[in-house]
Design a protein around this nucleic acid. Structure first.
Lengths: 78, 78
DNA sequence: ATTGGTAATGAAGTATGGCTTCGAATTTCC
DNA sequence: GGAAATTCGAAGCCATACTTCATTACCAAT
């Protein structure tokens, strides 16, 4: 029920789309499965630190940006 | 040997001290043990999302600040 | 209507690692 | 020196991150 997981997932989804990549693509580049990416984006579970690093690395953003929920972003939504 | 765990740990330690609280105090407030806090601060393991939330909550900082390693002597909050 | 590409979802299983307890050693600081 | 704070090890528990497989749904285009 952690709202952090949900928020994180939404942010991840945004950053992934902004990066112009699909769940499958992100899965391939991080060594995860598409189901895992989907589960993370929907807040089903929160990734462990190793995965956190991979995600930030692939998306080319600092890890902290994955936790920056400050703004409802103007772009890319929908 | 994830550098993220280590950096996170150092940041946590800084924020904890800045908050004027001991490992035991933080342990009590988060429902963890002092050993766990110690292990996290030394980068032995990275906390799960639930713990992440508790830590940020107790330290009264947004989660993203726990991942903000930009400045050694920062005055980020204020 | 059907194809093709993407994502959601469920069920069931594995195993990693987050966390604990206990005990002792070490560092820090007054 | 001595107490408090932190480190370290080892062993074990168990929650959960992640997997595989299989299905379903959505959404554009054609």
């Amino acid at each position: 029920m952690s709202t952090l997981k949900v928020q994180f997932g939404q942010q991840l989804k945004q950053l992934r789309k902004r990066h112009g990549i699909t769940q499958e693509g992100l899965a391939g580049l991080t060594g995860l499965t598409t189901e895992s990416i989907s589960n993370i984006e929907r807040g089903i579970f929160g990734p462990k630190f190793d995965t956190l690093e991979k995600l930030a690395d692939v998306l080319e953003v600092p890890v902290k940006q994955l936790f920056d929920f400050s703004q409802p972003n103007s772009k890319v939504s929908r």
